[in-house]
């Protein structure tokens, strides 16, 4: 279906800004997690969990975008 101008921009902003926010949140955790795994490989599981926690932010953005575009 065609998505009207401002709605499309809004959807784009929702995903884009949320993506930037996730990236900013994830970069420090990721760096620390890699450092920690280098010292002790057994904590891979926990490290992965901590790293991907902020990823949910961008998923929220995506959900909003989908709601905007398809509802």
């Amino acid at each position: 279906m065609p998505v009207d101008g401002l709605v499309a921009i809004g959807a784009g902003l929702a995903v884009g800004l949320a993506g930037i926010a996730s990236g900013m949140a994830e970069k420090d955790i990721g760096a620390a997690a890699v450092g920690a795994i280098a010292e002790d490989r057994t904590i891979f599981g926990q490290a992965l969990i901590f790293t991907v926690i902020p990823e949910t932010i961008v998923i929220f953005g995506l959900v909003i975008a989908i709601l905007l575009m398809f509802l």
């Binding site: 990823e55 949910t56 998923i59 929220f60 995506l62 959900v63 989908i66």
Partner: peptide, 12 residues
């Protein structure tokens, strides 16, 4: 809530 919404990544 964020846990449940997190599953929408399956689609995303």
């Amino acid at each position: 809530m964020s846990n449940v919404l997190s599953y929408t990544r399956l689609l995303a």
